[in-house]
Every structure is written in structure tokens, then in C-alpha cells.
Design a protein around this nucleic acid. Sequence first.
DNA 1: TTCTGTAATCGAGAATATCGATGAACAACC
DNA 2: GGTTGTTCATCGATATTCTCGATTACAGAA
Lengths: 307, 307
Amino acid sequence: MNNLPSLRHLRYLVALAETKHFGRAAEACFVTQSTLSAGLKELETQLGVTLVERTKRRVMVTPLGEQVVARAKRLLGAAGEIVELVRAAAEPLSGPLNLGVIPTVAPFLLPKVLARVRRAHPKLKLHLVEDLTARLLERLSSGVLDLALIALPYRAPDIETLELGDDPFLLATPPGHPLAGHEHVDAGELARAPLLLLEEGHCLRDHALAACRLAETAPAGERLQATSLHTLTQMVAGGMGVTLLPRMAVEAGLAKGTGIATSPLDDPQAKRKIGFAWRPSSPRKTEFRKLAEYFRAALRAPANTSS
Amino acid sequence: MNNLPSLRHLRYLVALAETKHFGRAAEACFVTQSTLSAGLKELETQLGVTLVERTKRRVMVTPLGEQVVARAKRLLGAAGEIVELVRAAAEPLSGPLNLGVIPTVAPFLLPKVLARVRRAHPKLKLHLVEDLTARLLERLSSGVLDLALIALPYRAPDIETLELGDDPFLLATPPGHPLAGHEHVDAGELARAPLLLLEEGHCLRDHALAACRLAETAPAGERLQATSLHTLTQMVAGGMGVTLLPRMAVEAGLAKGTGIATSPLDDPQAKRKIGFAWRPSSPRKTEFRKLAEYFRAALRAPANTSS
DNA sequence: TTCTGTAATCGAGAATATCGATGAACAACC
DNA sequence: GGTTGTTCATCGATATTCTCGATTACAGAA
């Protein structure tokens, strides 16, 4: 009846599959080589198959072994999640939390929010990773990240999202530009201005295009593309064109001292949403929802830091 | 480092959550009550929380405990799958296999196929369940079934399917019917005949309607509906109308002795597909693919058993 | 009160895991 | 060929853990 492989043995197997070396695998499991050797043998005996081919010189995992390893990894991860779940329930917002943030949000929203979070939850050890949405979500799924702060909408399977608030787009124009200083700008007028954008891969680019209902027309390479919001701002200040900046960036002082004028758009739909994303199976959803409140507050507060 | 809860302890917890009784839970785990009690206490100590409220009289699982139980169940299931995976690899097509089959396939396809399968794989213990597609897939997801034999296409998330072959529809007409005996029947002519169908819930009904590009017109209750292909056949024989029968049923002798004439339809698309469905995480996919060959062969072979 | 059902606890013994030391196979090198 | 170094398996001793049966402690029911 009770013939399930033990988690310890599975860990031995996984470590061995990763190192292909009994000694180092044992080290990784904090046991001696003899222990790991015996444990693995026991696992194989119990299952009645060989999972690992050992020649004296080299270790190879059998095809069946690979399948077992893959499942064992998932199993160990799930077991770890139980521990996390319990720890999180016992003391919410404590312990390590790996948070991914997209580059068009991180420098503008985090300074404000993280200070408060740190003060309220000193035991929370936030580890930050900055990358594009696609790569963040990859690392989310693989378990490297616990949580991601991204812009919505973003089509992605197998993640759950939670909206935190809106981030409207402002039209950024160089000094002296005909549209500069206007109270409100119509999206139609925008279509005629040379619009500068971030390079491919940034979700801000797609959201900006969607916001003013423009499709990408010129082939890639013919348009000027910036690698960050800071260089984009410099390009606008240099008179190379206009762009759409997220309000949070402007409020954080991105355009300060550049002479750039920023004006709201007429279209209330011209905005992106900021949101959390996590694995549907994450054991820490409750914590995330609590954490969300800090971001919500920051996104609601309309500071007065224009051009 | 090594602070994962052991599978054994998790099993104790799950058993306790199900029985709410230390003694019976212990029995279910084939240990004594004292062992289970100690094991559970150990688990709680290790996790640092109480998962179960014990009064002397009653056992209650805490809300946190319920969450742990839910994850523990999944974990135990996944561990069991590793064992299954290995067993299946060591000796394919052996051991117990719970197969669900829809009622419009089971009586016609299984007798033929199962005999061969049994002969070729005497160690395979096939347990059959007959039910409608929706309920089969439910039980598939919940792990009660390993595999389901259904008609495709069927929109269902979280299952993988494998097509096994086509099952064309034949027009079944009572003796003396104007369409009877025709070599080929056009779908257009069909629209004018009173078409009998199986009752709601049978996929055959939907596939038959799709096959002749008919939409359900009359409100439910006004149409005559049969509860099985056998009664449907009787209704046709009784002159109440015509119907579409799957070829496999006709070949199996469903219309034999009823005087019903069956004629192929002109439209080569007038057919349903037969296929396997399984959980994407199933450890026995390889076996299923092997098993599929027996069904493929049976579906290819065009026997000569018409009306 | 006494009795019954139930969970916790205790101590003993069995089973298991772990370690360090050693052995055996093999490759590389002199 | 012999030597050396690397690597995995094995062995015996020890520590840890698991399990059991017996007993205790407690709460309701009779």
C-alpha cells in the first residue's frame, strides 16, 4: 500500500540528474556520497527500474529516469509550496519574495511604494528583477519569480492577474511644437505628428499604439526607436518628434528640466492598466492581494509634478 | 534546508481530514492511532501551525489546514503518478486501467476491440465506465478515469485528445420510405424528412446535426427523442421518421432484422471522429498510444454487415 | 457516578538514514 | 606495466525516526 517514493529520495535523484555526479549531488543535498548512493539505489529498488546508468566514469539518466526527474521536480516544488503557504499564513508579508517589474514601471512607481512597504513590513525581503513582460512571465511560470508587476492587458495563458490601477498616457511634445501646451489633444491630430516609440518588445509600445488607435505602419528599422523612457524623452526634447509618456513617469519627474510639455489626451481610454501577475497555483495569493493595496494607493494619488 | 513535510505525514493529514477521526484515519493508513497521532503532531510542529483542532470529542480541520489538505492531495496524487509512470514503462499495458466510453460507441466498438486487446495484453485490467461525454471528462480530470473514448470534436479544456478514426453517418429509413435504398443521399433532401434524434446530452445528437448542417429548430419537448440508439432504431423501424446512425453501429448489426435501410450520405464530411481523451499530465500516454492502434484497426476495417 | 469513546503520551523495539572508511572499477599518466 | 587519482558501491557502526501496544486523560452519555 505505502509504496510511494520518499521526497528525500526524489531530491537525491533530481540533484544527481542536475550534477551527473554522486559526490556533488550529495553535497547539494547536504549528505555524504554514500548516503546519496544508498538512497538512490533504494529508490530504484523500490520502483523496480534503473533510473540512472552508472559506469564508473560517467553518470547518465535513462529516458525513463528523465521523465521521473521532471515529475519529481514538480513534486518537490509543490511540496515547497505547502511550506510557503503555511509560512505566509502564519506571518503574512514576511520572508523572501521575488518580484519582477517591467522597465517602464520600475523606476517610477517602485521608489514611492517600496519605501512604504518596507516600513510596514520590515520582515519582507523583496528581491527585484527588471525585465520585459514576456521574460518576466516565463520566469514566473518556472517558479523563479513569485510575482510580477506588469502593464495590462497582456495576453498570457496560465497566469492570474489583478488590476491595480490606471496609468493614462500624456502627449509629450518638444518646446515650440504646435500641439504643445494645449489643454487636451485629440487622438486624430496625433496621427499626423511623427510619433517616437520604444523599441520592439516593450509592452508600452503596444499599449501606446493601441491607446491612440494606431497600427504600426512603417516597417521596423525605418522608425526611430528608443531603448528606454529616458532616451525617448531626450529624443523628444531634441525635437525629433512627439511621444506618449505614461503619467506615472511624468509625475516621477521624467520630463523635468527638458522643456518638454505634457498634455492629457481627450480620449479617456488612452491609458494602460498596471497589474500584478502570478501563477494560478501560487500559495501566496493572499499576501499578494495585501501588497496590492500599496500599489493601488500609489496609482490613485495624483501628484503634481508636471513638466 | 531539508524541512519539507514527508509524504507519509501528509497522507495522515489527508486521511484525518476525510474521516475526522484519528482511529479510522489510522486504519485507512494501515497504522495504529498512536502512530497517526504522533505523525500529525510532528507535521504540525515542523510547519509551526495547527492544522487540526482537536477537542476530545470532535476533530476539525482549520481553514489553513484545509488549504494544506487540498495541496497535499494533489501532491500525493502526483507521487502516485510517478509510480504509475514507472510501472507503465516497465511493463506497458498492464495493471488496472479505468476507461470511460460513451454509450453510442461502447456496445458497437468495444466487443470487437476488447477481445483482441485482452488476448494481446492479458495483464491489462480494463475497468469500463459508460456515460455521457461531459461526465466522463469530469471524472477524467478528477482522476477517477485514466482514459476516455469519446467522439470528436468536443470542446473541452485541459484534456489532450488523439484521433482514432472516422465514423461516417448513414441515413436510416423505414421500409418503403422514398429515400430508402438510394445509393447516395444528398444532405438537402434530408432537411425535409422528419429527423429523429437522441435526447439532449448525447454528443451523437450534436454531431449528427452538424453533419447535415442542420440547426436545432423545434424547441425541446416537441421533438421525439430517443434514449439510446436501440430505441432510436425501433422508432425508425416503426415509421416515425428517419435518423442518422453511425456506421459502426450499423456494422455491429444494430439495424439487423428491423427492415431499416441504410444509405451513405453524399457529403464526405457527414461523420464523427472517434478519439481518446486523457489528462495532459497523465503518466501513461505512451500506453494509450499503443492501445490506440487496436481501436484504429477496428475503425479502419470496413465490415459488411448492413441492414 | 460510572461507562464509553476518543485523542495524547510513554517506553520499547524495529526500521531506516547517515556517516566514515574501505573496496573496486576505470582512465590517465609516467 | 605500474601508479595514481577519480568515482561509485559497499560495509559496519551509530543516530535518528517510526511504529506499536499499553496506558492515561478527558469529555459526554447513561
